[in-house]
């Protein structure tokens, strides 16, 4: 039973008189524990696919099953529940609350499933420890470096023990050294059993994954398993 299964998943944006087919008939499966990179040129539909997988958006056509649950026909509340419990999202622009501390930012997902305050703090501290930020918990985003901010975002994605971690160009705003650190962190998380899907257009970033889905004009152009030999130099 795959973790993710899509059948003819399509998304069409209506722009005035014109229809933009951002995603067309994407059918694929992703198993639990996989580490997948989605690659493709800008505008090819990577984010659109991620948003659908992450339940931030609903498809125009097709079906999407997550853990065998048919997500493509869920209402707003059910989608919010899935986002809260099953999915940890990491964004290119971090998307942290600027006025809240790192700890509070990581606590956010727990607020919306009613976790009691004490447990919330313990869980958030644990997640921040996993990303080596235990000594930066009371810092606000503006007091952290880009790499540290992305670590906070990753801790936030982890805090609820989701089935799936989605990262849409997580290194897009980072220099190459910091990018590498973040990728090492994601590798670690994968090794600990997390299922990870990462969007990128950089080969260097994608080579950390075990499988690369190439997207072109809203369709899957190639589905490629990476051989160990291609992964030389990766930690």
């Amino acid at each position: 039973m795959p973790l993710i299964e899509t059948r003819n998943l399509s998304k069409t944006y209506v722009m005035g008189a014109e229809n933009v087919h951002a995603l067309q008939d994407v059918s694929m499966t992703i198993e639990k524990g996989e580490y997948v990179a989605i690659m493709g040129p800008s505008g090819s539909g990577k984010s659109t696919l991620m948003n659908l997988i992450g339940c931030l958006d609903t498809p125009t056509k097709g079906e999407y099953y997550l853990n065998s649950k048919k997500v493509s026909q869920m209402n707003d509340n059910e989608l919010a529940n899935i986002r809260n419990r099953e999915i940890g999202f990491v964004f290119q622009t971090f998307n942290l609350l600027p006025r809240a501390t790192a700890l509070h930012n990581v606590e956010l997902p727990l607020i919306y499933n009613g976790t009691p305050t004490r447990d919330r703090q313990d869980m958030a501290k644990l997640a921040l420890t996993k990303v080596q930020l235990e000594d930066r918990m009371d810092h606000k985003p503006s007091e952290l470096s880009g790499g540290q901010r992305q670590r906070v975002a990753i801790a936030r994605a982890l805090v609820n023990n989701p089935s799936l971690i989605l990262a849409d160009e997580p290194t897009g705003n980072l220099d190459s050294k910091t990018s590498e650190d973040i990728m090492v962190l994601l590798n670690d998380l994968h090794r600990q059993g997390n299922t990870i899907i990462i969007v990128t257009h950089e080969r260097n970033v994608a080579r950390h994954a075990k499988r690369i889905l190439s997207i072109l004009d809203g369709r899957i152009a190639e589905d490629q398993i990476i051989k160990e030999s291609d992964r030389n130099g990766v930690h």
């Binding site: 992450g54 509340n77 919010a80 986002r83 809260n84 419990r85 609350l97 956010l108 997902p109 919306y112």
Partner: peptide, 16 residues
């Protein structure tokens, strides 16, 4: 608006 988007992406429902 952005804060609202962040909260919703993390599982906040409309009622929250």
């Amino acid at each position: 608006t952005r804060e609202i988007g962040i909260r919703k992406s993390l599982g906040a429902k409309q009622k929250h």
